[in-house]
Design a protein around this nucleic acid. Structure first.
Lengths: 146, 146
DNA sequence: TGACAAGTTTAGCGTAGGCTAAGTTTGCGT
DNA sequence: ACGCAAACTTAGCCTACGCTAAACTTGTCA
């Protein structure tokens, strides 16, 4: 393949300065900010160890991920300190949470068992477009009336 | 943290010998075998360049992924040769395809537009448990009758 | 107050999946 | 029969996300 055809299919100029790049990394960011928001709400504070337990990974992994999220302007914390969300992190968290709730409620409404709904919602939520989310919302609202 | 508490939360003994490990890697495998099956069916043959076009990645990425999938016993090919599926790859492809079709048909049935349904189905399909899939199937079947 | 445990970070490694640049193979057309 | 373009691979780099081992911080309590 001669040069021009092998070149990148997607323009990534300036990619290094974006908030979150790859889709997998974006999902991780969403999961983290959502979890941090929930932990702060529930326990008043969020520490790395809480996230490690939640995601079933080591604290090392959490530490590295948090430092990436901080450099992306989503979370804020000082070394050895508690974790909080930036404004942009909080915004992302609230979107993520709303979407999560809708997907979960939707799965319940179509008769999926609670445990499976919990698991599948985690996986599905990151892949639901606004249009599909709206359709889910409508169905969940109709629960039982159909 | 003292030794025993920091150790792995999940038993990964023998992990190195499993077919597909991480969930991300499993998704990639499913996408590839599904695409390979479809290409062979549609054009009679499948080449790396076809997959590169389809997934919008370079042929280099395709080449490396294929070699991993071959080492995992899902695809079969010789250097510079056409790509085929092993029995186990074909089995995975047919499961993946069935699931993809159900998810897509389901999204259409709840009123999601064709293009969005296509995109979301790609993302969602890997995260749908058998139970949820069955619920989707039921709803898609009821299309229009409710 | 000072030792210890819990929490956190750093160092270093591995896999998966991206990329570019550069080299190899193949097959087709003149 | 041979040259060239397309297809493919190799080499080398990067990020994300896992891990263990080891070092560092912090707060608590005897």
């Amino acid at each position: 393949m001669s040069k021009s055809t092998q070149k990148s299919k997607i323009d990534r100029t300036g990619d290094r300065f974006e908030l979150t790049r790859g889709s997998h990394a974006r999902e991780t960011a969403e999961d983290y900010v959502e979890a941090i928001a929930r932990l702060i709400e529930e326990k008043g504070t969020c520490r790395g160890v809480d996230l490690a337990k939640l995601f079933q990974v080591t604290q090392v992994t959490v530490s590295k991920t948090l430092s990436r999220l901080q450099s992306e302007g989503l979370v804020d914390y000082e070394p050895y300190g508690p974790i909080s969300l930036t404004k942009s992190g909080a915004t992302m968290a609230s979107y993520a949470r709303e979407r999560h709730e809708v997907v979960l409620e939707f799965l319940r409404s179509i008769g999926v068992s609670e445990e499976i709904a919990q698991v599948d919602a985690e996986g599905i939520e990151h892949h639901v477009s606004p249009e599909t989310l709206e359709a889910f919302r409508t169905i969940a609202r109709r629960k039982g009336t159909c």
